[in-house]
Simulated assay, not measured.
Amino acid sequence: MTAPLPSSAPITVQVALGERSYDIVIGRGGIDTLGQRIAALRPGARTAIVTDRNVAAQWLPRAEAALDQAGIAHACIVVEPGESSKSYAGLQQVCEALIAAKIERNDLVIALGGGVIGDLAGFSSALVRRGLDFVQVPTSLLAQVDSSVGGKTGINSPHGKNLVGVFHQPVLVIADTAALDTLSPRQFRAGYAEVVKYGALGDPAFFAWLEANHAEIAHGGSAREHAIATSCRAKAGIVARDERETGERALLNLGHTFGHALEAATGFSDRLFHGEGVAIGMVLAAEFSAERGMMPASDAARLAKHLAAAGLPTRMQDIGGFAQEGLADADALLTLMTQDKKVKRGRLTFILMEAIGRAVITNDVDPAPVRDFLQRKLSER
Protein backbone atom coordinates (compact mmCIF):
# COMPACT_ATOMS: atom_id res chain seq x y z
CA MET A 1 0.00 0.00 0.00
CA THR A 2 1.45 3.35 -1.07
CA ALA A 3 1.34 6.60 0.85
CA PRO A 4 -1.43 9.08 0.01
CA LEU A 5 -0.83 11.48 -2.86
CA PRO A 6 -1.52 15.20 -2.50
CA SER A 7 -5.25 15.79 -2.85
CA SER A 8 -4.68 18.30 -5.68
CA ALA A 9 -3.29 15.62 -8.00
CA PRO A 10 -5.93 13.63 -9.91
CA ILE A 11 -5.40 9.90 -9.62
CA THR A 12 -6.05 7.60 -12.57
CA VAL A 13 -6.70 3.89 -12.12
CA GLN A 14 -7.06 1.69 -15.19
CA VAL A 15 -9.43 -1.26 -15.44
CA ALA A 16 -7.43 -3.51 -17.80
CA LEU A 17 -9.88 -5.36 -20.03
CA GLY A 18 -8.03 -5.35 -23.34
CA GLU A 19 -9.91 -3.40 -26.00
CA ARG A 20 -12.57 -2.55 -23.41
CA SER A 21 -10.15 -1.06 -20.88
CA TYR A 22 -11.16 2.22 -19.27
CA ASP A 23 -9.89 4.75 -16.76
CA ILE A 24 -11.21 5.75 -13.36
CA VAL A 25 -10.28 9.39 -12.77
CA ILE A 26 -10.34 10.35 -9.09
CA GLY A 27 -10.08 13.88 -7.73
CA ARG A 28 -11.85 17.12 -6.92
CA GLY A 29 -13.44 18.96 -9.83
CA GLY A 30 -13.75 15.93 -12.07
CA ILE A 31 -17.29 16.83 -13.18
CA ASP A 32 -15.92 20.07 -14.66
CA THR A 33 -13.74 17.99 -17.01
CA LEU A 34 -16.64 15.82 -18.22
CA GLY A 35 -17.07 17.63 -21.53
CA GLN A 36 -13.42 17.67 -22.54
CA ARG A 37 -12.98 14.01 -21.61
CA ILE A 38 -16.02 12.93 -23.61
CA ALA A 39 -14.97 15.05 -26.58
CA ALA A 40 -11.59 13.33 -26.59
CA LEU A 41 -13.09 9.88 -26.04
CA ARG A 42 -15.98 10.08 -28.52
CA PRO A 43 -15.74 13.07 -30.91
CA GLY A 44 -19.12 14.18 -32.21
CA ALA A 45 -21.17 12.11 -29.78
CA ARG A 46 -24.45 13.31 -28.34
CA THR A 47 -25.22 12.44 -24.73
CA ALA A 48 -28.08 11.75 -22.36
CA ILE A 49 -27.58 12.37 -18.64
CA VAL A 50 -29.49 10.02 -16.36
CA THR A 51 -29.74 11.28 -12.79
CA ASP A 52 -32.13 11.53 -9.86
CA ARG A 53 -33.96 14.55 -8.53
CA ASN A 54 -31.66 15.06 -5.53
CA VAL A 55 -28.40 14.76 -7.49
CA ALA A 56 -29.82 16.97 -10.26
CA ALA A 57 -30.31 19.81 -7.79
CA GLN A 58 -26.66 19.65 -6.71
CA TRP A 59 -24.65 18.56 -9.76
CA LEU A 60 -26.68 18.60 -12.99
CA PRO A 61 -25.93 22.30 -13.74
CA ARG A 62 -22.18 21.63 -13.40
CA ALA A 63 -22.36 18.60 -15.68
CA GLU A 64 -24.43 20.47 -18.27
CA ALA A 65 -22.06 23.43 -18.19
CA ALA A 66 -19.08 21.14 -18.79
CA LEU A 67 -20.83 19.55 -21.77
CA ASP A 68 -21.94 22.94 -23.15
CA GLN A 69 -18.39 24.27 -22.90
CA ALA A 70 -17.20 21.35 -25.05
CA GLY A 71 -20.07 21.81 -27.54
CA ILE A 72 -21.67 18.46 -26.67
CA ALA A 73 -25.44 18.18 -27.11
CA HIS A 74 -27.25 16.53 -24.23
CA ALA A 75 -30.66 15.42 -23.02
CA CYS A 76 -31.57 14.96 -19.35
CA ILE A 77 -33.54 12.11 -17.78
CA VAL A 78 -34.43 12.63 -14.13
CA VAL A 79 -35.88 9.85 -11.97
CA GLU A 80 -36.95 9.74 -8.35
CA PRO A 81 -34.17 9.09 -5.81
CA GLY A 82 -33.86 5.78 -4.00
CA GLU A 83 -34.06 2.05 -4.63
CA SER A 84 -37.67 2.33 -5.82
CA SER A 85 -36.37 3.62 -9.17
CA LYS A 86 -34.20 0.51 -9.58
CA SER A 87 -37.24 -1.41 -10.77
CA TYR A 88 -38.99 -2.58 -13.92
CA ALA A 89 -40.92 0.70 -13.99
CA GLY A 90 -37.73 2.73 -13.61
CA LEU A 91 -36.02 0.71 -16.33
CA GLN A 92 -38.91 1.32 -18.71
CA GLN A 93 -38.89 5.04 -17.94
CA VAL A 94 -35.19 5.44 -18.74
CA CYS A 95 -35.21 3.19 -21.82
CA GLU A 96 -38.17 5.02 -23.34
CA ALA A 97 -36.60 8.39 -22.57
CA LEU A 98 -33.33 7.37 -24.27
CA ILE A 99 -35.26 6.28 -27.35
CA ALA A 100 -37.32 9.49 -27.34
CA ALA A 101 -34.11 11.52 -27.11
CA LYS A 102 -32.86 9.73 -30.25
CA ILE A 103 -29.68 8.58 -28.58
CA GLU A 104 -27.89 6.44 -31.15
CA ARG A 105 -25.31 3.67 -30.88
CA ASN A 106 -22.38 6.04 -31.40
CA ASP A 107 -23.65 8.37 -28.65
CA LEU A 108 -23.11 8.12 -24.89
CA VAL A 109 -25.27 7.74 -21.80
CA ILE A 110 -23.96 9.52 -18.67
CA ALA A 111 -24.88 8.04 -15.28
CA LEU A 112 -24.72 10.98 -12.86
CA GLY A 113 -25.51 9.79 -9.35
CA GLY A 114 -25.07 7.04 -6.82
CA GLY A 115 -25.27 3.29 -7.14
CA VAL A 116 -28.96 3.22 -8.05
CA ILE A 117 -28.42 5.57 -10.99
CA GLY A 118 -25.28 3.76 -12.14
CA ASP A 119 -27.04 0.40 -12.12
CA LEU A 120 -30.21 1.72 -13.75
CA ALA A 121 -28.52 3.86 -16.42
CA GLY A 122 -25.97 1.14 -17.15
CA PHE A 123 -28.63 -1.54 -17.58
CA SER A 124 -30.76 0.77 -19.75
CA SER A 125 -27.77 1.60 -21.94
CA ALA A 126 -27.05 -2.10 -22.38
CA LEU A 127 -30.58 -2.71 -23.66
CA VAL A 128 -31.46 0.29 -25.82
CA ARG A 129 -30.56 -0.28 -29.50
CA ARG A 130 -28.88 -3.51 -28.32
CA GLY A 131 -26.15 -1.60 -26.55
CA LEU A 132 -25.06 1.99 -25.95
CA ASP A 133 -21.78 2.99 -24.34
CA PHE A 134 -21.99 4.86 -21.07
CA VAL A 135 -19.91 6.95 -18.70
CA GLN A 136 -20.14 6.63 -14.93
CA VAL A 137 -20.02 9.85 -12.89
CA PRO A 138 -20.56 8.49 -9.38
CA THR A 139 -21.55 11.04 -6.75
CA SER A 140 -21.67 8.82 -3.62
CA LEU A 141 -18.76 7.18 -1.84
CA LEU A 142 -20.32 3.75 -2.30
CA ALA A 143 -20.61 4.27 -6.04
CA GLN A 144 -17.10 5.71 -6.36
CA VAL A 145 -15.40 2.75 -4.69
CA ASP A 146 -17.67 -0.06 -5.79
CA SER A 147 -20.75 0.02 -7.99
CA SER A 148 -19.41 2.34 -10.73
CA VAL A 149 -16.48 -0.01 -11.43
CA GLY A 150 -16.70 -3.44 -12.99
CA GLY A 151 -19.73 -3.38 -15.25
CA LYS A 152 -22.42 -4.90 -13.04
CA THR A 153 -25.73 -3.27 -13.95
CA GLY A 154 -29.27 -4.21 -13.06
CA ILE A 155 -32.49 -3.69 -11.18
CA ASN A 156 -34.16 -5.29 -8.18
CA SER A 157 -36.88 -7.92 -8.26
CA PRO A 158 -39.55 -8.37 -5.59
CA HIS A 159 -37.69 -11.63 -4.92
CA GLY A 160 -34.37 -9.96 -4.18
CA LYS A 161 -31.70 -7.41 -4.98
CA ASN A 162 -29.97 -7.13 -8.37
CA LEU A 163 -31.59 -10.28 -9.76
CA VAL A 164 -32.23 -8.79 -13.22
CA GLY A 165 -29.27 -7.31 -15.07
CA VAL A 166 -26.25 -7.74 -17.31
CA PHE A 167 -22.51 -7.13 -17.31
CA HIS A 168 -21.95 -3.90 -19.27
CA GLN A 169 -18.68 -2.04 -18.71
CA PRO A 170 -18.52 1.75 -18.82
CA VAL A 171 -16.05 3.48 -21.11
CA LEU A 172 -14.96 6.00 -18.45
CA VAL A 173 -15.49 6.63 -14.72
CA ILE A 174 -15.11 10.15 -13.31
CA ALA A 175 -15.11 10.09 -9.50
CA ASP A 176 -15.34 13.73 -8.44
CA THR A 177 -14.53 13.64 -4.74
CA ALA A 178 -16.03 17.11 -4.26
CA ALA A 179 -19.44 15.48 -4.74
CA LEU A 180 -18.93 13.65 -1.46
CA ASP A 181 -19.02 16.95 0.42
CA THR A 182 -22.78 17.10 -0.16
CA LEU A 183 -23.56 13.64 1.25
CA SER A 184 -25.26 13.28 4.59
CA PRO A 185 -23.08 11.69 7.30
CA ARG A 186 -25.22 8.55 7.10
CA GLN A 187 -24.77 8.25 3.32
CA PHE A 188 -21.03 8.72 3.65
CA ARG A 189 -20.78 6.10 6.38
CA ALA A 190 -22.75 3.64 4.25
CA GLY A 191 -20.22 4.05 1.46
CA TYR A 192 -17.36 3.64 3.90
CA ALA A 193 -18.52 0.08 4.59
CA GLU A 194 -17.49 -0.84 1.04
CA VAL A 195 -14.07 0.71 1.63
CA VAL A 196 -13.62 -1.44 4.73
CA LYS A 197 -14.63 -4.45 2.65
CA TYR A 198 -11.50 -4.19 0.48
CA GLY A 199 -9.25 -4.30 3.52
CA ALA A 200 -11.22 -7.12 5.11
CA LEU A 201 -11.22 -9.35 2.06
CA GLY A 202 -7.64 -9.00 0.84
CA ASP A 203 -5.47 -6.23 2.27
CA PRO A 204 -4.71 -6.37 6.01
CA ALA A 205 -2.32 -3.41 5.79
CA PHE A 206 -5.08 -1.28 4.26
CA PHE A 207 -7.49 -2.39 6.98
CA ALA A 208 -4.99 -1.33 9.65
CA TRP A 209 -4.52 2.01 7.86
CA LEU A 210 -8.29 2.51 7.88
CA GLU A 211 -8.41 1.83 11.61
CA ALA A 212 -5.88 4.62 12.14
CA ASN A 213 -7.26 7.09 9.59
CA HIS A 214 -11.04 6.66 9.28
CA ALA A 215 -11.71 10.02 10.93
CA GLU A 216 -9.47 11.79 8.39
CA ILE A 217 -11.25 9.99 5.54
CA ALA A 218 -14.55 11.37 6.81
CA HIS A 219 -13.08 14.89 6.95
CA GLY A 220 -11.81 14.75 3.35
CA GLY A 221 -8.51 15.61 1.71
CA SER A 222 -5.70 13.28 0.72
CA ALA A 223 -6.71 10.48 3.11
CA ARG A 224 -10.14 10.28 1.49
CA GLU A 225 -8.76 10.18 -2.05
CA HIS A 226 -6.15 7.62 -1.04
CA ALA A 227 -8.87 5.38 0.40
CA ILE A 228 -10.95 5.70 -2.79
CA ALA A 229 -7.98 5.04 -5.08
CA THR A 230 -6.83 2.03 -3.05
CA SER A 231 -10.36 0.59 -3.16
CA CYS A 232 -10.62 1.18 -6.91
CA ARG A 233 -7.23 -0.44 -7.56
CA ALA A 234 -8.32 -3.48 -5.59
CA LYS A 235 -11.56 -3.82 -7.49
CA ALA A 236 -9.96 -3.05 -10.87
CA GLY A 237 -7.42 -5.82 -10.35
CA ILE A 238 -10.06 -8.38 -9.45
CA VAL A 239 -12.34 -7.36 -12.34
CA ALA A 240 -9.45 -7.56 -14.82
CA ARG A 241 -8.74 -11.13 -13.69
CA ASP A 242 -12.37 -12.28 -13.44
CA GLU A 243 -14.75 -9.96 -15.26
CA ARG A 244 -17.79 -12.28 -15.24
CA GLU A 245 -17.47 -13.51 -11.66
CA THR A 246 -16.60 -17.10 -12.42
CA GLY A 247 -14.12 -17.24 -9.53
CA GLU A 248 -12.16 -14.59 -7.63
CA ARG A 249 -14.60 -11.73 -8.25
CA ALA A 250 -17.10 -13.42 -5.94
CA LEU A 251 -14.86 -12.26 -3.05
CA LEU A 252 -16.22 -8.75 -3.64
CA ASN A 253 -19.53 -10.05 -2.28
CA LEU A 254 -18.17 -10.27 1.26
CA GLY A 255 -21.10 -9.33 3.50
CA HIS A 256 -23.54 -9.17 0.61
CA THR A 257 -25.37 -12.49 0.97
CA PHE A 258 -26.51 -11.55 4.47
CA GLY A 259 -26.78 -7.86 3.57
CA HIS A 260 -28.95 -8.30 0.48
CA ALA A 261 -31.38 -10.48 2.44
CA LEU A 262 -31.68 -7.75 5.06
CA GLU A 263 -32.27 -5.13 2.36
CA ALA A 264 -35.02 -7.24 0.84
CA ALA A 265 -36.57 -7.81 4.26
CA THR A 266 -36.75 -4.05 4.81
CA GLY A 267 -38.34 -3.50 1.40
CA PHE A 268 -35.29 -1.84 -0.18
CA SER A 269 -36.16 1.23 1.88
CA ASP A 270 -34.28 3.98 3.71
CA ARG A 271 -34.56 1.88 6.86
CA LEU A 272 -31.38 0.17 5.69
CA PHE A 273 -28.95 1.64 3.16
CA HIS A 274 -27.01 -0.85 1.05
CA GLY A 275 -23.70 -0.09 2.75
CA GLU A 276 -25.33 -0.50 6.15
CA GLY A 277 -26.56 -3.93 5.09
CA VAL A 278 -23.04 -4.77 3.92
CA ALA A 279 -21.60 -3.68 7.28
CA ILE A 280 -23.96 -5.94 9.22
CA GLY A 281 -23.42 -8.68 6.62
CA MET A 282 -19.63 -8.53 6.98
CA VAL A 283 -19.90 -8.90 10.75
CA LEU A 284 -22.30 -11.83 10.35
CA ALA A 285 -19.95 -13.46 7.81
CA ALA A 286 -17.00 -13.01 10.17
CA GLU A 287 -18.89 -14.35 13.17
CA PHE A 288 -20.21 -17.31 11.16
CA SER A 289 -16.63 -17.98 10.02
CA ALA A 290 -15.46 -17.90 13.62
CA GLU A 291 -18.19 -20.32 14.66
CA ARG A 292 -17.02 -22.71 11.94
CA GLY A 293 -13.47 -22.52 13.27
CA MET A 294 -12.19 -20.73 10.16
CA MET A 295 -11.30 -17.42 11.75
CA PRO A 296 -10.17 -16.23 15.20
CA ALA A 297 -13.06 -14.75 17.15
CA SER A 298 -10.76 -11.83 17.97
CA ASP A 299 -10.56 -10.92 14.26
CA ALA A 300 -14.35 -10.97 13.96
CA ALA A 301 -14.56 -8.70 17.01
CA ARG A 302 -11.92 -6.39 15.52
CA LEU A 303 -13.94 -6.00 12.32
CA ALA A 304 -17.12 -5.24 14.25
CA LYS A 305 -15.28 -2.77 16.49
CA HIS A 306 -13.94 -0.78 13.53
CA LEU A 307 -17.28 -0.63 11.73
CA ALA A 308 -18.96 0.53 14.95
CA ALA A 309 -16.23 3.14 15.49
CA ALA A 310 -17.03 4.48 12.03
CA GLY A 311 -20.69 4.84 13.04
CA LEU A 312 -22.04 1.85 11.11
CA PRO A 313 -24.59 -0.71 12.32
CA THR A 314 -23.07 -4.10 13.15
CA ARG A 315 -26.06 -6.08 14.44
CA MET A 316 -29.46 -6.84 12.96
CA GLN A 317 -30.95 -5.26 16.07
CA ASP A 318 -29.45 -1.93 14.91
CA ILE A 319 -31.93 -1.78 12.01
CA GLY A 320 -34.90 0.52 12.53
CA GLY A 321 -38.11 -1.39 13.12
CA PHE A 322 -36.11 -4.53 13.78
CA ALA A 323 -39.10 -6.77 14.53
CA GLN A 324 -41.03 -5.77 11.39
CA GLU A 325 -41.33 -7.43 7.98
CA GLY A 326 -39.60 -10.72 8.77
CA LEU A 327 -36.40 -9.25 10.16
CA ALA A 328 -36.79 -11.29 13.35
CA ASP A 329 -37.64 -14.45 11.41
CA ALA A 330 -34.64 -16.65 10.59
CA ASP A 331 -36.63 -18.79 8.15
CA ALA A 332 -37.82 -15.72 6.22
CA LEU A 333 -34.28 -14.36 6.01
CA LEU A 334 -32.94 -17.73 4.85
CA THR A 335 -35.62 -17.86 2.14
CA LEU A 336 -34.43 -14.48 0.89
CA MET A 337 -30.82 -15.68 0.97
CA THR A 338 -31.67 -18.66 -1.25
CA GLN A 339 -32.57 -16.15 -3.99
CA ASP A 340 -28.96 -14.95 -3.97
CA LYS A 341 -27.26 -15.17 -7.37
CA LYS A 342 -24.51 -17.37 -5.89
CA VAL A 343 -26.91 -20.17 -4.89
CA LYS A 344 -26.31 -23.37 -6.85
CA ARG A 345 -29.01 -26.03 -6.80
CA GLY A 346 -30.30 -24.85 -3.45
CA ARG A 347 -26.90 -24.84 -1.72
CA LEU A 348 -25.48 -21.52 -0.55
CA THR A 349 -22.16 -20.04 -1.56
CA PHE A 350 -20.75 -17.72 1.10
CA ILE A 351 -17.79 -15.40 1.18
CA LEU A 352 -16.30 -16.24 4.56
CA MET A 353 -13.09 -15.21 6.28
CA GLU A 354 -9.94 -16.85 7.59
CA ALA A 355 -8.49 -13.62 8.99
CA ILE A 356 -8.66 -9.86 8.54
CA GLY A 357 -7.42 -9.47 4.97
CA ARG A 358 -8.13 -13.05 3.87
CA ALA A 359 -11.60 -13.90 2.56
CA VAL A 360 -12.44 -17.20 0.88
CA ILE A 361 -15.20 -18.51 -1.35
CA THR A 362 -17.03 -21.30 0.47
CA ASN A 363 -19.28 -23.39 -1.74
CA ASP A 364 -22.03 -25.86 -0.94
CA VAL A 365 -22.90 -24.49 2.50
CA ASP A 366 -25.71 -26.41 4.20
CA PRO A 367 -28.56 -23.94 4.91
CA ALA A 368 -29.43 -25.59 8.25
CA PRO A 369 -26.41 -24.27 10.21
CA VAL A 370 -26.97 -20.84 8.63
CA ARG A 371 -30.57 -20.87 9.85
CA ASP A 372 -29.45 -21.85 13.35
CA PHE A 373 -26.78 -19.13 13.35
CA LEU A 374 -29.31 -16.50 12.28
CA GLN A 375 -31.71 -17.63 14.98
CA ARG A 376 -29.05 -17.21 17.63
CA LYS A 377 -28.03 -13.78 16.36
CA LEU A 378 -31.67 -12.67 16.19
CA SER A 379 -32.26 -13.72 19.79
CA GLU A 380 -29.44 -11.52 21.10
CA ARG A 381 -30.39 -8.44 23.06
Rank of each mutant, 00 (worst) to 15 (best):
H219W: 15
P43A: 04
G255F: 00
A227C: 05
P158V: 08
D329F: 04
H214F: 15
G237H: 09
E325P: 04
G122H: 02
G151D: 02
I217S: 00
E211R: 11
R345S: 15
G267P: 04
V50M: 05
A73Y: 12
A215M: 12
K305M: 06
D366V: 07
Q36G: 03
F123C: 01
A56I: 05
E80F: 13
I72P: 01
K344M: 10
L348K: 04
F322Y: 15
V164Y: 10
L348M: 15
L252V: 14
V78W: 07
L272W: 09
G115Y: 07
A215I: 15
G29D: 13
I99R: 06
E216F: 07
A240G: 14
R244I: 05
I31H: 01
R20V: 09
G281I: 01
G202T: 12
G320I: 10
M282P: 01
L272G: 14
F123T: 00
D366Q: 10
A297N: 10
T47R: 00
R62P: 05
L163Y: 01
A200Y: 06
R292H: 11
E245K: 12
T182F: 03
L163C: 13
L127E: 09
T314W: 06
G131R: 08
S140A: 08
L141E: 06
S125Q: 02
L252C: 15
K344L: 14
K102I: 08
R347G: 10
T349M: 10
L67Y: 05
G118R: 06
A264H: 12
A265N: 13
A250V: 15
T335C: 07
K342L: 09
N106A: 04
I319K: 06
T338L: 10
V79P: 01
G154S: 10
S289P: 10
A328N: 13
D203E: 14
E354C: 10
P313N: 01
G82A: 02
G82I: 00
A223L: 13
V173M: 01
V137Q: 02
N253G: 11
R292A: 12
S289V: 01
L163H: 07
A3M: 13
R381G: 09
G199S: 06
R224H: 07
S147E: 11
L254Y: 15
I356C: 05
Q69W: 05
T182S: 14
S84T: 13
R46K: 12
A3V: 14
V173G: 00
L336G: 06
I356W: 02
A143Y: 05
Y22N: 12
L112E: 02
L132C: 09
R347E: 14
G113K: 05
